[in-house]
Design a protein around this nucleic acid. Sequence first.
DNA 1: TATAATATTTAGGCAAACCTAATTATTTAT
DNA 2: ATAAATAATTAGGTTTGCCTAAATATTATA
Lengths: 222, 222
Amino acid sequence: MFTQSEENYLKAIFQLQEEIEGGISTSSLSEKLETKAASVTEMLKRLSDKELVDYQKYYGVQLTESGRKQALLIVRKHRLWEYFLVERLNFNWDEVHEVAEQLEHIKSPKLVEELDSFLGRPEYDPHGDPIPDKHGKLPKSPTKKLSQLKLGDHGICKGFNDNSSAFLQFLDKQNIGLHTPIEVLHIETFDESMTIKIAQREVLLSKTATDNIYIDNIATEA
Amino acid sequence: MFTQSEENYLKAIFQLQEEIEGGISTSSLSEKLETKAASVTEMLKRLSDKELVDYQKYYGVQLTESGRKQALLIVRKHRLWEYFLVERLNFNWDEVHEVAEQLEHIKSPKLVEELDSFLGRPEYDPHGDPIPDKHGKLPKSPTKKLSQLKLGDHGICKGFNDNSSAFLQFLDKQNIGLHTPIEVLHIETFDESMTIKIAQREVLLSKTATDNIYIDNIATEA
DNA sequence: TATAATATTTAGGCAAACCTAATTATTTAT
DNA sequence: ATAAATAATTAGGTTTGCCTAAATATTATA
């Protein structure tokens, strides 16, 4: 068994590995986990002793196969609980993160499988993030970012990459949510900001925003 | 906020107070929590500093009003989760205890209230134990122990006082469960063991067993 | 390429919770 | 009422996980 803290480190390393290739730096982990670099170094040694990560002093860490498996289980639990909170307990999708951070550490294989089955084996959580199955397999994820669409493209929001409350509340305010259909009306060349159409309204989004919105691309205007 | 360990102590003190009048001894807590007496003493000082308990060296502890309120919240969460696990996730009632011990520490007032509402505001958990409401109020509990019934009495099982797996499995084997109707056929005078009728079968129960079974008394034979 | 800037690690501390062993208080029994 | 038995507390140690400050390694710059 692993401590909650160990699990948090494994999850953080996993998530950084999705974004960055190569070894994950001490400082990126210390930033993500809001802890000091010295604490990270210490924990990486522990995780390395338990063979959950490959750690080279001064050159970062990567998960071992065993560490990756564990990380996927934590992600699975986190996302299943988020789904439960939103779909069954009337949470808003921007309220669930903190609670799911606690629930993901509950240890009971039976609980995870029964919860999954109770929820109808969902493939995506309320943020559109894919839920690993019990073997750690991820469903194919919506790959295009909104920023990759071209003028006139149509699509449907399938996920968001930034889970901060600020971003999620911004989206809410703009009426952008999961399964919202959008259309690209204009792209500013100098800063790549985008005007999109959402339910009859026109909304301007920065490149930062469009980079963090995943889209299922439906069709392109002739 | 309180640590998990502090919460476990508060719950344990609360439960011992239900059984025993007066101050709760260090040794009874150390036994219940499976920890050494020295650790208990240490924690009692901490809880006393936080004004959750009244602690007199060598003379035991009792919860303060604030400690009791906190303990009731933990009990509430524990029993709501047990209900959820049994009624929604297909757990058997003798499998839920360990998982509920973890879930009871999740901190989110909204989660507790939404879960309660989702479950239909149940009054009793799967062991028949009463679930405190959000203000800490307990529904009137089935008060009679099976051991208090007299020859010829009829009743319905409403709860059990010993949550050990061994006891719960024993009950299962005898087909004694929640809402099972029983009838007292015979009481042995020398050891107070009892023969009861359950669904056409006769079962002999020790005083230890009958002390741990709660009954709604229905009627007495003429 | 040497030096400055930055990142990382080491060293030494702290608090929570546990432990064992030794001491002290209370209770029981003679 | 005192001695023996039992219970509780204190003293001192351990592990986890965090911290700050100092030292060292790596990277960037002049």
